[in-house]
Design a protein around this nucleic acid. Sequence first.
DNA 1: CCAAAAGTGTTGCTAATACACCCATGT
DNA 2: ACATGGGTGTATTAGCAACACTTTTGG
Lengths: 239, 239
Amino acid sequence: MAAHATDVSLAVSTVIFALRPHPETGRMTVWMPLVRRIREPFVGKWALPGGPLEPDEDLAESAARTLAETTLLTPQYLEQLYAFGNIDRSPGGRVVSIVYWALVRSEEADVAVETENVRWFEADSVPELAFDHNLIVEYALWRLRNKLEYSSIAHAFVGDTFTLSELREVHEAVLQKPLDPANFRRQIEGSGQVVPTEHLQTGGRHRPARLYRYNRAASDENNGPLPSRSLPGRTQGAS
Amino acid sequence: MAAHATDVSLAVSTVIFALRPHPETGRMTVWMPLVRRIREPFVGKWALPGGPLEPDEDLAESAARTLAETTLLTPQYLEQLYAFGNIDRSPGGRVVSIVYWALVRSEEADVAVETENVRWFEADSVPELAFDHNLIVEYALWRLRNKLEYSSIAHAFVGDTFTLSELREVHEAVLQKPLDPANFRRQIEGSGQVVPTEHLQTGGRHRPARLYRYNRAASDENNGPLPSRSLPGRTQGAS
DNA sequence: CCAAAAGTGTTGCTAATACACCCATGT
DNA sequence: ACATGGGTGTATTAGCAACACTTTTGG
């Protein structure tokens, strides 16, 4: 009852979110890279990046690896989303997918590769995907929008330092509604999730804006007993 | 790269919560059943009920099955908690565990079996468990307490109809703090998650209390795009 | 009548909203 | 000077916590 090998194969996939200006309207919206399937089932259809779990890597590592392999991106945020394991979700073999979701900076997303088999889609209007990936994307988007309101993940979309306008633009893009600049400022400043620096950002044709830095300590408190949940490893070491 | 069988085995475990009066103080507290391991690794240690995923059952089904096998309980609520898959979490073989958490009614918990290898523990003071199960229990407790405050899962601990005092007692037991009866009433009634019936509960040496019923429709809205999340199947059909 | 819990009312605080207004820069 | 966003002030409102008070039962 204990040691017989399972007939179920285990995969790890990732929903990757980035903000990009919409090519037509110019407004910032949520985008995600998808990969084209090159074998059955669902050949030719778009799907989430991912692959089988290697025996020598942790779940989050696996997500980060396949993410890097397909898009060359390094995520600022990576968190487990859900494990999908319905019997019939994959024709031709039982597959349980542990799905992660990741956030990458906008600047990075701009440089991201786009090939014949990797393309960016607007998150709210992805085509019909392979497997149950449409449901997964829908759920990930729901989590993103939900979590943005009670957590401090927005900073993952911006640089190390940022103006409050930039941060507000992130919120507006994700939540798809305009926010009052004055109230947004007070909310964010009051939450302690952000720390002012001494630098200002000049260059706009208006008053320079103060630059802020993310305050890691403040937001680690609401994350529960599970380890870090944010960047899988700041380790920039050679490898 | 695609079809080679994985070396990783897949298990499903469940953290089961019920409310029981503390044997000494008499106060309601959170309890959970644990099973004693009867083989290596960790022989003799207590662990979460669970087992390998059968190829012909969904993840939630598997959780419900092992839950029933060990405790004979039928949960009122069953939701996926997290997938634990660190490389070294199980000595002697890579195991990824998809963990669920369940809530069962207090009356049921009273009747629950307790054998040499199944025992109830107070959730806040479990002994040293097998594997990483202490972390899992801690996380499940955190989720329970968290979710109680923004969701309407408390009804899973009580019967089909209940007084607001009973519901408040659930909140107080889980959150470990007294709540103002007047404000609690307004909060619950105002949230629409509960519907008054025409019946009163007499018998106490005081004014009879109105009985309420859970309002399923109202709380399905905050649950995101994932299917039902509550009872795995109200199907009482023979099997 | 009294104890005890059910249920209602009121007050005061805090936080979110809406919006008016001043500030500092580039052109 | 003026347009543009940065940043502050403020009045209104909604929600919540604290607690006084009334109601209805069993004893």
